[in-house]
Design a protein around this nucleic acid. Structure first.
Length: 571
RNA sequence: UGGCCCCUAGUGUAAUGGUAGCACGAAUGACUCUGAAUCAUUUAGUCGGGGUUCAAAUCCCUGGGGGCCAGCCA
């Protein structure tokens, strides 16, 4: 609405400004015609676990670059280790990428589709004297490799004749040798300062069946001998990966150069780190396997399926990835940035409803017994086009326990004895008293209402400081509400006491289940996965797994920003 | 300890030898039938030192801090 007159100019400007380093590289290549104007990226997950928000950054980057520069992006499974990979994961990964909003068209690829080609290339390198079969054990290989400061030693098999290596390699493939007895190694430089270049293993023997190739192979190529060539086969232009592969780039280039094949280029960016959670696949697996969470889709997890179940939207995640940027600096993003991205999206799209998390009974003494009125509530105050709905009002209602105090602290402007507040979309009510149980807890509040304030405004123009939400007791629906907090107590889960590990930093209060919550009757048929704003509370997702008609379950995706909570906490 | 990479407001990210900007956060105020949203204002930065240059966040040297690498994982 406050856009300058020349809209297209500004958007073009926005697009050209603030390009991150990968975009700059792509634009330079495009300008110089490096790949005949082609841009072709790929997202290459290993199907050994579920995708998490860190992968989302990579997905948005790779698919985003392709979309922005009129290029293509492949989905490629890096499935070279049959002992860890499963079909369950490939299906889940495909679903998550699709859900995020990206399309790989007909370019669903598997590194395992290239096993024959990779084998031929390995033979080529042996023949060229650039690779050899090594009979060293895993332990011996490690000893020969040297350390960070000392060079390695040549393997005694390094100068084995090519014919012998060729024969041994064929017999490895034929299954003549047990696991771990031999490897195929590249002949590079055992004294290289970059340890990756110290005669890296190209193939290992693994008598394991593969999720796609079954038992066709008992030797499998290593990542380094697979990834670059896969990029080459797929005519990738920009092979984008995370920083820890920086040391591998010389090897990536070496294989491609020695093989004399089409050369893509690898670029590395910093992976995403978030406070109060953790991205390690190994650790996520442990949380799932040890039952610290309910599964890969536990809403407390940073997995995409967990975030989806929590109530995150693809748009929120994409916007988040956009705002955090892409660089080479190892940074940690505050979880609040992710939460903010969700609020931004949900604020626009989520219909508003009433939900009372912790109900407190209120009797409106001067409201006729048995009378029920239908009042009109807006589905989104800022978007009239989203319509209105009717909500029933009656003599006994529920309000939030937190909205009543026996005595008002400073700046508290909710319900207090003697004070008047507005019931949203209903009436002004004044508190006349309250009753307590033997334990001293307030179990009922007494009020009177002003019939002249129907709809929420007073004809005499008087104002109230507070507006609270409410639900007609007899018409409201019982619901289970799950409130989530950070998975870990510490911003950095690895910041733990002596002798303890990251598990000890798990937040024991990361899940709070409320079984007595109430929601308005319009939610009776709420669709699984539907998102709502419970006014004054937060955004809630109808749990897609556990919610059933008659037994509603809501997940709190994220709470609303809460100025009052800040004031109270500050005291 | 060897190699490689990195360091810009609290956080994240631009500026690629030429005015240090943006977003989020925070603070304050306005508005408000959501203590939300929205709007306005404010806040605060180039890791230290040296050099090159008319001019350095940017190039060079040096010190400091951080990350990655010694899987037959990816």
């Amino acid at each position: 609405m406050n856009k300058p007159p020349n809209e297209s100019d500004t958007s073009a400007e926005d697009a050209t400004e603030r390009r991150h380093f990968i975009q700059q590289i792509v634009e330079k290549d495009l300008a110089e015609g490096t790949y005949d104007g082609r841009v072709h990226t790929r997202f290459p997950p290993e199907p050994n676990g579920y995708l998490h928000i860190g992968h989302a950054k990579s997905i948005c980057l790779n698919f985003g670059i392709a979309a922005q520069y009129n290029g293509l992006c492949n989905l490629r499974f890096d499935d070279t280790n049959p002992t860890k990979e499963e079909d369950e994961y490939v299906e889940a990964i495909k679903e998550d990428v699709r859900w995020l909003g990206f399309d790989w068209g007909d370019r669903l690829c598997y590194a395992s589709d290239y096993f024959d080609q990779l084998y031929d290339w390995a033979v080529q390198l042996i023949k060229a004297g650039k690779a050899y079969i090594c009979d060293l054990s895993a332990e011996e290989t490690r000893e020969y490799r040297g350390t960070l400061t000392e060079p390695g030693k040549n393997s005694p098999f390094r100068d084995r004749p090519a014919e012998e290596s060729l024969d041994l390699f064929a017999r490895m493939k034929a299954g003549e040798f047990p696991d771990g007895t031999r490897t195929l190694r590249a002949k590079i430089d055992m004294a290289a300062s970059n340890i990756t270049m110290r005669d890296p293993v190209m193939y290992r023997i693994l008598h394991a069946s593969h999720h796609r190739t079954g038992d066709a192979w008992c030797i499998y190529p290593m990542y380094d001998f697979t990834h670059g060539q896969s990029d080459s086969i797929e005519r990738i232009t920009h092979s984008i990966c995370t920083l820890e592969f920086e040391n591998h780039r010389p090897l990536y280039d070496w294989y491609i150069r020695e093989l004399g094949i089409y050369a893509p280029h690898q670029y590395e960016f910093a992976r995403l780190n978030l406070t109060f959670t953790m991205m390690s696949k190994r650790r996520l697996l442990k949380l799932v396997e040890d039952g610290h969470v309910s599964g890969w889709d536990d809403p407390r997890l940073p997995t995409l399926c967990g975030l989806r179940r929590r109530g995150y939207t693809p748009a929120a995640i994409r916007n988040f990835c956009e705002t955090i940027g892409v660089a080479k600096f190892n940074s940690t993003i505050h979880m609040s940035v992710l939460e903010g991205a969700l609020r931004d999206d949900l604020n626009e799209i989520a219909p508003r409803v009433s939900g009372v998390l912790r109900p407190l009974r209120v009797v409106i003494e001067n409201y006729p017994e048995g009378q029920v009125e239908q009042l009109t509530a807006q589905n989104h105050p800022q978007k009239p086009e989203m319509g209105t709905r009717q909500v029933p009002f009656s003599r006994v209602i529920y309000i939030e326990q937190a909205d009543f105090r026996e005595e008002a602290p400073k700046k508290f402007f909710r319900l207090v004895p003697g004070r008047e507040v507005r019931l949203r979309y209903a009436y002004f009510v004044k508190c006349t008293g309250f009753v307590k149980n033997d334990a001293g807890e307030v179990i009922e509040v007494r009020c009177t209402y002003d019939p002249e304030t129907r709809g929420g405004s007073a004809p005499d123009g008087r104002k109230v400081k507070g507006t609270i939400h409410w639900l007609s007791a007899e018409h409201s629906l019982r619901a289970e509400v799950r409130l989530y907090d950070h998975l870990f107590c510490k911003a950095d889960p690895d910041d733990c006491d002596e002798g303890k590990d990251w598990i000890s930093n798990l937040n024991p209060n990361s899940l709070e289940v409320l079984t007595e919550s109430r929601v308005e009757p319009s939610l009776a048929d709420a669709e699984p996965g539907a998102l709502y704003q419970f006014e004054r509370q937060g955004y809630f997702n109808v749990d897609p797994v556990d919610s059933k008609p008659g037994a509603l379950v809501f997940n709190r995706a994220v709470a609303l920003r809460d100025q009052w909570a800040k004031i109270e906490k500050g005291k």
